[in-house]
């Protein structure tokens, strides 16, 4: 999960505890959510809604490849922007959005 800037710390270590398991699950949830959004967005951008055919045509296939590349880039750019705004660390982030 390089776009989260936390990938380096996730190297395997000996000794499993509950906290690490919970973190792994949060990470899995995050990647799954990211993947699902990418699938949805690229489907909207690339797949014709006519459904006359069950196969991806050449144009759709090429569009998907480029869409995945762009979606990843956008994720990274938005992450960098949030970080430079001092919003990327968990604690400060939610707090910056109104203190209810």
């Amino acid at each position: 999960m390089s776009f989260l800037g936390g990938g380096r710390g996730a190297t395997p270590t000996s000794g499993v505890n509950m906290e690490k398991i919970e973190m792994a699950i949060t990470e899995l949830d995050t990647v799954t959510d990211f993947f699902n959004r990418m699938v949805q967005s690229c489907h909207a951008k690339c797949i014709s809604a006519r459904y006359a055919d069950a196969d991806l045509n050449k144009g759709e296939s090429v569009c998907i490849d480029r869409c995945v590349a762009k979606f990843n880039d956008v994720q990274k750019k938005v992450g960098e922007k949030l970080q430079s705004r001092g919003q990327a660390n968990a604690g400060g982030a939610a707090g910056g959005f109104g203190s209810f």
Binding site: L4, T26, T30, D33, F34, R37, S41, A44, K45, K70, F71, V74, Q75, V78, G79, L82, Q87, A90, G91, A93, A94, G95, F97
Partner: peptide
């Protein structure tokens, strides 16, 4: 919770701006 909210906001924002 705050971590999860932040991650959801981040994913949401990236998706919206991409779209």
């Amino acid at each position: 919770k705050q971590m999860q909210d932040f991650l959801r906001m981040y994913a949401n924002l990236a998706e919206k701006c991409f779209n």
